[in-house]
């Protein structure tokens, strides 16, 4: 294993992680809800009466975050290099998989692991496993 020291950003990643943890803490203690991005979007796509408004406000916050961040510093715009077909297939798999598996990186990976939930710890291990395997196949076997 070779470490990519040029792109390694332990401090900003740790700082960003602390903010993500803070956001999850505010939502569970303040509103009693799990901060899982897939679950929050899923509840808008497949709405339950009386349980949609807060989800839209949270999504609005996510959408406004780059603009809000730009007030303090230059928020770095993302570069998405995947081709259109790959983006569409990946999006379909992420949407289908996170609903079937009841969670994503934030819902299982952050909140579930922090609840010490065996389900979420299992889910996190599994999606990381296929994430590693997929990148290995795409970058080192198929190309």
């Amino acid at each position: 294993m070779t470490l990519d020291w040029a792109h390694f950003t332990p401090w900003s990643s740790l700082g960003g992680g602390l903010l993500i943890g803070l956001a999850a803490s505010i939502l569970i203690l303040g509103a009693g809800r799990i901060m899982g991005a897939a679950g929050i979007v899923g509840g808008v796509v497949d709405p339950r009466p009386g349980d949609v408004g807060w989800r839209l406000w949270l999504i609005a916050g996510l959408l406004l975050a780059p603009t809000a961040l730009a007030l303090f510093s230059a928020a770095k715009a993302p570069l998405i290099e995947a081709s259109w077909p790959v983006l569409i297939i990946a999006g379909l798999l992420v949407g289908f998989g996170t609903r079937l598996g009841s969670g994503c990186t934030s819902g299982h990976g952050v909140c579930g692991v922090s609840r010490l939930s065996p389900r979420s710890i299992t889910a996190t291990g599994l999606f990381m496993l296929t994430g590693f395997a997929t990148v290995f196949l795409v970058r080192h076997v198929l190309s």
Binding site: V86, T122, A123
Partner: peptide
């Protein structure tokens, strides 16, 4: 849970995008 998580990981590995960051990137 198992199947869904395995499927999600494949999509995550294909594009490097998971649900939260996807929304922020739309922003």
């Amino acid at each position: 849970l198992v199947a869904g998580s395995l499927i999600f990981g494949i999509g995550w590995g294909l594009a490097g995008i998971c649900p939260g960051p996807a929304i922020v990137d739309v922003g």
